[in-house]
Each structure stands twice: as C-alpha cells, then as structure tokens.
Nucleic acid binder design. Structure first.
Length: 659
DNA sequence: GCACCTCGAGTTCA
DNA sequence: CTCGAGGTGC
C-alpha cells in the first residue's frame, strides 16, 4: 500500500510537471512504467484505490466510442467582421435600438468550444459543440485538464461554456515528440487540441497539456455579462484575464488595436476579438438571426499566414561571400505590407522544408516584421515543381563556391567579386559603422557601377568629383554637399567604428569595442600577434586568426594607409563616460519599439549608467525592456521569470514625462 | 566534450 | 528576428 501511495503521488506530480515545465523530471517511458505498476497494484487490491489516483482521473479505461450529447441550450457560433467599417456597422445596428450601452471585449482563443455541465457543484458532463445542437461527450478527456474544476466552490447546477485550447508551449512539445517518434506533426495548436480532445483514450489526452478558458454562462441570472464572468471566476473557473469593459465602440477599436499588437506575446493563439453587448436584457431583446446572435460578433484578425506561389529561388552574395537563397514570391499582402521576397537562410533550411520552385508556400512575418516562409502546401503540388538545388558557382562573378568544413553555408571566395565589394562598401557607410548619411545602398551600388567608388578609400576622394556628381540624375548641389559633409564628419569617428566598418570576418560592433579597450590605435592592433589576441576575454583562436590575417593582406594594409593619409581617424576616442551607476552591472535586453526613442538611444542611456545590454535573453539577463510589438524575447523573459519593464516603467525611471 | 551564452550576418518594406 | 558559429566554463 505504501508503494501504491508513493506511485500515486509521483505520477500526479509528473502529470502536473508535464504541462507546466519545459523538462519534466521523468521520461515518457518511465511514466508509463510507473503507471503500469500502479495499475497492477490497484487491480490486485481494488479496495485500496484512492480517489485522486491518476488511473481514476484519466478514466483508466479506454472508451469505445463517443456518446452523443444534446445541448439543453444550443451552442451558437458568432458572426464575423473583418475591418473597422464592419465593426462600426455592427455597432450602428445595435445603437439604433440602444443608444447607450457597454460592450465586453474578449480575446478569441483559437481552440474548441466546450460545454460543461455541473450538478450540485460537481462536473458530470463535458461536450463538444458539434453542430450546435448535438455534440459529443468528452467528459473523460476534459477531466484531465487541470484548470477545469471537478468541484465548484458552490454546490450549484450550472452549465458553463468556454474554449479548450493547447498552449503554444504544449504544442511545440507535442510536435517535437511526434517527430521523434516518427508520427506526423500537427499543423497548428487548434488542430492539435481538437485531435487530443477527441482521443478515446484519456491517457493520451492527459499528456497533451491542454488548458481552457470559460467565457459564457448561458442561463445567467445576472444583469450583465461582465457580472456573469466575475461569478464564474468565483466558482473556480479560469476566465481570461484580458477581458475589458468598453463604454463605446471607439474603446472596442482601441482594445482591438492593442491586442493586434500584443497578440504574438500571448502563450496561446488567438484568432480575433469577441465583442459582446454587456447588458443581458439588451442581449435578449436583440436576439438571434437564424444562426448567430445579434448581440455579439467576432472580429477576425487578418490571417497571419498567407498562401502564395514561390516563383523562383535566387541567390544573393553577402559581404563575406556567404551565399543566401531567397524566395521570389508572387506579391501578397501580409499584415499590411506587400511581400515579394523572403529569405530562405541556407541550403539546409530549403531541403528540410523541401521547398521547390513553383510551390505554394505560407508566408508570415517573423516578429511581425521580417517575412519568412513557414511551410509548403503539399496539396497544391502538380508535379511541375523543381526540387531545390544549391548553385555551384557565384551568381555574380562565376567563381566556384566552397562549403567550408563543418559549416552550413556556401561561400564565394573571390575577394574581387563585385557583389562582395559592393556589400562591403555598403557595410562601411552603414549606420552602425561609419554612419555616412546620404550614401545609401542604391547610391553606393550606382557609384560602384559608374566607377566613382571602387574601394573604401574612394569614398574620401569623392569631394574631388563634386561637379560631376551634381550633374548626375537625382542629385543636386544640396544633396551632394550634404553627402560630402557627412563623409567629412565620418573621418572623426572613433576607432571602434572604423574597425567594425572594415569588415574583418567575425568582428562586429561589440567585438570591435572590446578590441579597442586593449588597443587604442590601429597600429598597436596591427602589431598584435594571435596568441596575444586570444588572451583577451571573448576573443578566441578563430577571431585572432581572422584579425592577424586581415592585417597581413597587402591590399588591406594599403587601404588603411590611404585612409590615414586622407585624414581618417585611427584611434579610440569615444570612451563613453559613465554618469552614474544606477544600472551598474545590470544586463538589459531591449525588444519592440518605444515612442520617441530608438533602441540605440535607450542602449546608450543604459550604458551611460553603468548597465550592459545584449541581444538575447538568458538566465543572466536582469531586465527585459518591452516596447510595442515585442517579439519572442518577451516570451523568453516570461519563461525565465525575468523582470519586465514596459515603456511606462522605463520612462518613469528615465524621468521622462509622457505627453 | 557539452551546455550555455553571445555575437555576427543577412533580411523586408515603405 | 532568425539562424548558425564562436567562445567560455564546467
């Protein structure tokens, strides 16, 4: 009996861990083994079986088929609206009858609707929506969902409705498991939730990490929907915390805007916003059309993943010679902008996703900004698609591409390759490098092709070509002079900018700064040997070698001399002064955007106060600053339990008063 | 030799 | 933002 009690406690703990932790402290096989052992003990001593035994909770036995359930009150679905105009039309229809009324806005969870019936406070039946009138009995699976109470805080007879969903985290884990076990993956959390809830064996559903939000009390005695929700909370149901009472349609639109932005940072997927009239009497007066209530509607987000045709795969050459495959797409609108290109990263990415020329692919915006290819729609294939093939020769200069040992990417190793040269020049003038305004990518490309700029030092010789430049189409005295002035100013940049701008392999903005701490002039750096360099923290043998090799190259040495003669500063000057130590040794990560401030400005502010910034969230991060439209970093921060500051909090600390 | 962290490089549209 | 690679520390 002791062993049995031990097993029950262990298994309950594991089942809980399974959908709350990333790494449960037990393997699946071990879990199954313990479960088998428990079943053996219980079957030989049925009199010992505890009410909270996991064999009880999950039904223990596999039911043979779903039982049909007729809903006492039919489960309705909602009408859809897709834009502001349609939302206002919806509001106009209601306002005609009720000029003053409130709305309740809720997130529309992307899952499956369920109906829960309680008798005397005890859950006795759960059913799917089905066709709205008749659904299927899924009580055995719903009982495995931790957040759905088996017993309410009051002994009432009540029917409550809500949404069962699969959190993003559970979904990822499930797909990883499916993949490792050679099973087919689920396309989205909704499908996975649906598949799990329809398992006949509740043992499977119990491990899928489902969760639920409740949002509807069909026969509510309360005056308003909002009060019903509060009552549901009191009974022990999980009501989504992001509900909002809105006084008018403008507040509804604000709510929609807010969540359109914050959507991706939620730990579950939502596909829209539900708008309901708050007053229950008004709801009754408004009534229903044939199918849907007139007192509620669902605003649907524009689809995040859009299907389009991948017409071609082209290859670009980066500054380092790295070859990147790019998808050429039939232009589609995705979240407000028209997308015609998307990166395909590298050969492995294309092969792993089996992306072929001619395929239909789903496009989405990573972090709501950068377009990316999600997956191929296999059902749209017709056999004319051509499999991905990595090119063998540089698309620009034709030299043979090399795949470096143990690396994923291919490289064009011709240092005279025009693509590489142009990219290198663009990098030199870019904002974080020498920061020369008025000499952007397009112009740099043109200047290279016209022959004005062939190498870095030519940038500082442009002033002798002033008259010629003014004659060029699209240029005038003003633009040329301001450009030349910006070039002049850039000569005074500190060494760290120059080092970064030169484009030494593996030396980015940060590493350039680190080097400047030890070598304050370019000459001292040039005379350093690789052992000396690799003694620096953060600089290893590979970077040391890259640096030494760069300064061995005749052409590079010549260019540096030219730059020196043209008056470019070669020493470290911009030691930032630390004003105070408010943030001493605190590590910050910034994500999203902030009003009136760029991320770089915030970064400078933090560094001035002794803080450190980095680009990725880890256990060592102290604070994550979250602005508008944050990306996955916010999720990571929540996951690791790291302090989060929003814009308000940041401005408060900075002493900026919001207008 | 591995796990974890950090960095660099390339990336889209308006 | 995403990826992969380089660096460090156990």
């Amino acid at each position: 009996m002791d062993r049995m009690n031990e097993l029950i406690d262990l298994l309950n703990k594991y089942a809980y861990e399974y959908y709350t932790l990333d790494k449960p402290s037990v393997e699946d096989q071990e879990y199954d083994r313990l479960m088998q052992e428990l079943i053996r003990i219980e079957s030989s001593h049925p009199e010992w079986v505890r009410a909270d035994s996991p064999t009880r909770k999950i039904g223990g036995e596999v039911i043979s088929e779903f039982v049909k359930v007729t809903h006492d009150v039919p489960m309705f679905s909602l009408g859809n609206v897709f834009n502001e105009d349609e939302i206002r039309e919806f509001d106009d229809r209601i306002s005609k009858e009720f000029p003053n009324h409130e709305y309740v806005c809720e997130l529309k969870i992307d899952g499956l609707a369920v109906s829960l019936e309680y008798k005397n406070g005890i859950l006795f039946r759960a059913a799917t929506r089905g066709d709205g009138t008749v659904g299927e009995d899924i009580t055995h699976n719903v009982k495995t969902i931790k957040s759905i109470p088996h017993k309410l805080t009051e002994n009432v007879d009540i029917t409550i409705r809500g949404e069962v969903y699969m959190p993003k985290k559970s979904f990822e884990r499930l797909n990883k498991y499916q993949e490792e076990h050679g099973e087919s993956k689920f396309q989205n959390p909704r499908n996975a939730a649906a598949g799990s809830i329809r398992q006949l064996d509740s043992g499977i559903a119990s491990k899928r990490g489902l969760d639920a939000f409740l949002y509807h009390y069909p026969l509510t005695p309360f005056k308003t929907h909002y009060e019903s929700l509060m009552y549901m909370k009191k009974l022990g149901f999980v009501v989504n915390p992001n509900i909002k009472l809105c006084k008018n349609i403008d507040e509804v639109l604000e709510y929609i805007d807010e969540w359109t932005q914050k959507r991706s940072s939620l730990p579950y997927e939502i596909d829209g916003i539900v708008i309901k009239v708050n007053d229950i009497d008004m709801q009754r007066e408004l009534g229903y059309t044939a199918k849907v209530p007139k007192w509620a509607t669902a605003y649907k987000f524009p689809p995040e993943h859009v299907l389009t045709r991948l017409t071609d795969i082209i290859f670009t050459v980066g500054r380092t010679g790295q070859i990147t495959p790019n998808a050429v797409l039939e232009p589609v609108r995705v979240m407000g902008s028209t997308i015609s290109r998307a990166t395909l990263h590298n050969q492995d990415f294309c092969i792993q996703k089996d992306i072929r020329k001619g395929d239909y692919v789903y496009i989405y915006k990573a972090g709501d900004v950068i377009p990316a290819v999600d997956r191929v729609e296999l059902s749209r294939r017709n056999g004319t698609e051509t499999p991905f093939e990595m090119i063998k020769y540089c698309p620009m200069c034709g030299s043979k591409l090399k795949k470096r040992e143990g690396m994923v990417d291919f490289f064009c190793e011709n240092i005279h390759c025009p693509a590489r040269k142009i990219e290198g020049l663009i990098h030199f003038v870019s904002r974080n490098a020498m920061n020369i305004d008025g000499l952007g990518e397009r112009i740099m490309e043109d200047f290279y092709n016209y022959g004005f700029i062939k190498k870095i030092s030519d940038i500082y010789r442009l002033n002798s070509k002033r008259e010629e430049l003014i004659e060029l189409e699209g240029f005038g005295i003003k633009s040329v002079d301001s450009m030349l002035e910006n070039i002049e100013t850039s000569k005074h940049n500190s060494l760290d900018r120059l080092l970064f701008a030169l484009g030494i392999n593996g030396i980015g903005a940060k590493t350039a700064k680190i080097l400047c701490k030890y070598y304050t002039s370019i000459d001292s750096l040039m005379s350093a040997n690789s052992t000396e360099l690799s003694n620096i923290h953060d600089i290893g043998p590979i970077l040391s070698e890259n640096i030494v090799n760069y300064f061995k190259d005749e052409n590079n040495l010549k260019e540096i001399e030219e730059l020196r003669n043209l008056g470019v500063n070669m020493s470290f000057t911009s030691e930032e002064t630390i004003e105070d130590e408010t943030f001493k040794d605190k590590r910050f990560v910034i994500t999203g955007s902030f009003e009136n401030l760029t991320r770089d400005e915030i970064k400078a502010y933090i560094e001035k106060r002794g803080g450190l910034t980095s680009d990725s969230v880890s256990k060592k991060t102290d604070v994550v600053l979250v602005g508008e439209a944050p990306g996955s970093k916010r999720d990571k921060a929540l996951e690791l339990g790291i302090t989060i500051w929003n814009q308000e909090k940041l401005f408060e600390i900075m002493g900026i008063v919001e207008k």
